[in-house]
């Protein structure tokens, strides 16, 4: 089953990394994955975004088509991407940041996580994307909590960034538990 997820937010919020972690978790679980950033002139418009696809079989188009889920970390991203979300899809927002009226489509599910509040509690402001990712993984239901944490930690470990393993795991778990 092919899944498509869009990660969008301000540059610096870690949305591209969140997408990369999810794609790496997919590989870790034996699936195929693609990660496609939106780059070039469009990325200077205030939002950064990437599209991740994962599947048990061959992934044909790596591009943005009709996402099953969207992680939106700012209002412009919410407004832009809510339009292309697949009917029945999930719009996951940081409810501390996306404070606009989110009740704009009745055929999709909007889930808010107070991620900014959570990372402040954790004293880990850079963990925002990982808290959100924890929530996303649970909502998607394709990977168990432990599977996803292992995949994530494996990725950072290969990049030589094990130092943040405990903090990342904690942030992921808080996100996972929040929905």
């Amino acid at each position: 089953m092919l899944k498509e997820v869009v990660f969008a937010g301000f540059g610096g919020q870690g949305v591209l990394t969140a997408g990369l972690i999810l794609s790496q978790v997919a590989l870790f679980s034996g699936k195929k994955a693609t990660w496609m950033p939106e780059y070039g002139a469009a990325m200077r418009g205030g939002t950064a975004n990437c599209t991740v696809k994962y599947s048990d079989g061959r992934i044909f188009s790596p591009g943005q088509e009709a996402p099953d889920a969207i992680m939106a970390l700012n209002i412009p991203s919410f407004n832009r991407f809510i339009k292309i979300l697949k009917p029945g899809g999930i719009m996951l927002i940081d409810s501390d940041i996306v404070t606009c009226d989110t009740n704009v489509r009745d055929d999709v599910k909007v889930v808010g996580v107070p991620a900014t509040t959570i990372v402040n509690e954790l004293n880990n402001p850079r963990g925002l994307n990982i808290v959100m990712l924890g929530a996303l993984v649970k909502l998607m239901g394709d990977y168990s909590e432990q599977e996803a944490i292992d995949g994530m930690n494996d990725m950072f470990s290969k990049k030589g960034k094990n130092a943040f393993e405990a903090a990342n795991t904690e942030a992921f778990k808080r996100g996972y538990a929040s929905v």
Partner: peptide
């Protein structure tokens, strides 16, 4: 293409 240069895959 730019898209393939920029995209990630295993």
């Amino acid at each position: 293409e730019g898209a393939l240069g920029q995209m990630m895959e295993d």
